[in-house]
């Protein structure tokens, strides 16, 4: 276990968000960027999916979110060039989400796809315009409206990344006449 080793740490199920975050070396401001996860939300650490009689009720596993978040942060940190690489990492993450999405739920299937296209367009330099706020709005929508943890975690994580690395997104050149999001 340990952040420096790059191995995912084992988090006890009863661990609080604050405790887990500390274990993972994640600063509190990062968490505050996630809408809905503030001090009032700390008691949801360790929450697992609850299966309701009528629904696979999709409470987000915030512990899982923290772990994914940690992986991304680690990758960005190790790259050195945080501003640029955070956008690249996000692109790869969204590709991964698309590959894993079952395709049933619209926020996940189409929402993460449009976000992927948005971020890809930015990286390729083909985005017609770019507003981090629009991306964050879409991400928050995906984060609260998706059917299962995949979409919900993805949305929250993108919103978090835009919030923390806003400058990185703004450094990409935006084409005037290109088509895109």
């Amino acid at each position: 276990m340990g952040v420096s080793s790059g191995v995912l740490p084992q988090v006890p199920p009863e661990a609080s968000v604050a405790g887990t975050a500390a274990l993972l070396g994640i600063e509190t401001p990062v968490l505050c960027c996630i809408k809905g996860v503030d001090r009032a939300g700390t008691d949801r650490a360790g929450v697992v999916a609850v299966v309701h009689p009528l629904q696979e009720k999709a409470d987000v596993s915030y512990r899982g979110l923290l772990l994914v978040n940690w992986v991304l942060r680690e990758l960005v940190r190790r790259c050195g060039n945080q501003d640029v690489f955070s956008v690249e990492v996000l692109r790869h993450f969204l590709e991964l989400v698309q590959e894993a999405s079952c395709g049933r739920c619209i926020p996940c299937r189409l929402g993460t796809r449009r976000m992927l296209e948005y971020v890809s367009g930015l990286v390729r330099g083909t985005a017609v315009r770019f507003s981090p706020d629009e991306l964050a709005a879409m991400a928050r929508f995906v984060g609260v409206s998706s059917r299962c943890d995949l979409g919900r975690i993805a949305g929250k994580l993108v919103a978090n990344t835009v919030c923390c690395y806003r400058r990185a997104f703004e450094r990409y050149p935006v084409q005037e006449a290109a088509l895109g999001f």
Binding site: V37, P53, L54, Q55, V60, C105, I106, G143, S145
Partner: peptide, 26 residues
Amino acid sequence: NKVGACRICVVEVEGEKDLVAACNTP
């Protein structure tokens, strides 16, 4: 069909952080 896939029927439930589908949430 009650799979809650389209997410058009989402509603807010006090105490829930995320929106829930009304069609298949008891």
